[in-house]
Design a binder for these strands. Structure first.
Lengths: 245, 245
DNA sequence: AATAAATATGTACTTAAAACACATTGATTT
DNA sequence: AAATCAATGTGTTTTAAGTACATATTTATT
């Protein structure tokens, strides 16, 4: 490279730099929900930032210039859980100036629902761990706020759409399903009313199998009707006759 | 600058450049809703991109490295409408690789509700115009998708929270309020049931004034109780006893 | 003074949510 | 083998909310 070329290159790069608009990095952060042991859990990793020593953080990565933000999330998921074809949905962007100690990083949060049992990730090898959502007090960065926001979003979605099934194995009993709803919503539900509503919704098919390995009378097993198996996808607002304010 | 210095600088900048992570610009786009003439409208500007000649686009700007993303939206709003203290809420980020013709730009969409009458913006001076949401077929960039997504979000919010009042003047009649709901939701509502639900909600106070300048029997005027005047702010998921699936 | 057009209000019907009780099945214990 | 335990599985009543619908009242206009 001649000195002239070098000078030109420097000038060119400085122009861009001084535009000041490319000094912001973009990341995605994934709130990966799982369900186990009657608890809603989230997959976390030990933070490797010295500012957050001892704290856990969500799984995230910077977005590459040639990938869609949703693709970036899927990539993070695939890298961390080994799983494809998972339920994923954007929550929102978080962009406070001071949210990241090493510079300006705006992040876009996604939440994802996976069947924790399918996911044979090597928890022992790395620093990943599933932690009960309700036990989490503090996370690195603004990740606690991101988690809280995502949980609220999940709670809202769960009331309107058949999404919880992504957290369960293919076959499940009504008790398991109810316990899952209770874990997500943080309320106790009446078994009889719950079953009635489920039968009204017509989301499930009775597969004519019974639970096994339960220390009591086994319940019937169900699975989600295939037409409701959406891995994300746009959800329309419900149609309205009168206003359900 | 010596050659050595220059070489170092080039190397340093190239390192950053090659990190490849600062080659993404971030913008905010505001879907500014207004209500006039019994129609829901949105504030648009003629696109100055030759790729989108003749098309309109949302109002947006790049986010500066030292401003929060929400501040950036407020700035755009203030610059374009002259209004402070408006209702503003994030919708989501849009980040397809090819969404912007001049490079990689990820945008964060906000929607905002303003009283169109309060806003004395110089529509004639510039290229701004209020356009009926239902008439819009095509916009620059991916702005039509952003608009559609924002409208769906608005429709959902309106069913749960008292936000529509940001689109109305301080004093309004129940008919005006109902027409506004109808315009947003795109449905006809029963007047008697609408009033009943409004009285149940207890959002309004009767201010003991009557409409004027209407070519028929004037109706009573109401205003929103001050405790519901939130300019945005977090909305919790509704508490649940049983599940309203 | 009569008419038109909107405001204002109330009642019956239907559907969904909430509270609640008992019989049944299979595993475990005696 | 019988009794007990713990869960499954179903149905009814009560209450609240959503929906459909009709008539009287007030003001501006003719």
């Amino acid at each position: 490279m001649t000195e002239r070329e070098m000078r030109m290159k420097t000038a060119e790069i400085e122009k861009i730099t001084h535009l000041d608009y490319f000094n912001i990095a973009i990341s995605v952060d994934c709130v990966i929900f799982g369900y186990d042991d009657k608890e809603l859990k989230v997959l976390l990793i030990k933070s490797d930032f010295k500012e957050f020593e001892g704290l856990y953080s969500l799984l995230g990565d910077l977005v590459k210039p040639d990938e869609d933000i949703e693709s970036a999330s899927y990539r993070v998921l695939k890298e961390r859980t080994g799983m494809d074809d998972v339920y994923l949905e954007q929550v929102q962007a978080f962009g406070s100036v001071d949210r990241h100690p090493s510079g300006r990083v705006i992040t876009i949060a996604y939440y994802s629902l996976i069947d924790i049992k399918h996911h044979k990730l090597q928890l022992s090898h790395n620093e990943l761990s599933w932690q009960p959502v309700n036990d989490i007090r503090k996370l690195a960065f603004d990740h606690k706020i991101i988690l809280d926001t995502s949980l609220i979003r999940l709670q809202q979605q769960v009331m309107d759409y058949p999404v919880v099934f992504n957290l369960l194995p293919e076959k499940f009993s009504l008790r398991e399903l109810q316990e899952l709803y209770e874990a997500i919503l943080g309320v106790e539900l009446d078994r009889r009313n719950f079953r009635k509503k489920m039968s009204i919704k017509e989301w499930l098919v009775d597969i004519d199998e019974m639970e096994s390995d339960v220390p009591h009378r086994p319940g019937k097993l169900y699975k989600l009707k295939p037409e409701f198996r959406k891995k994300s996808g746009r959800k329309k607002a419900a149609p309205i006759k009168q206003m359900s304010l």
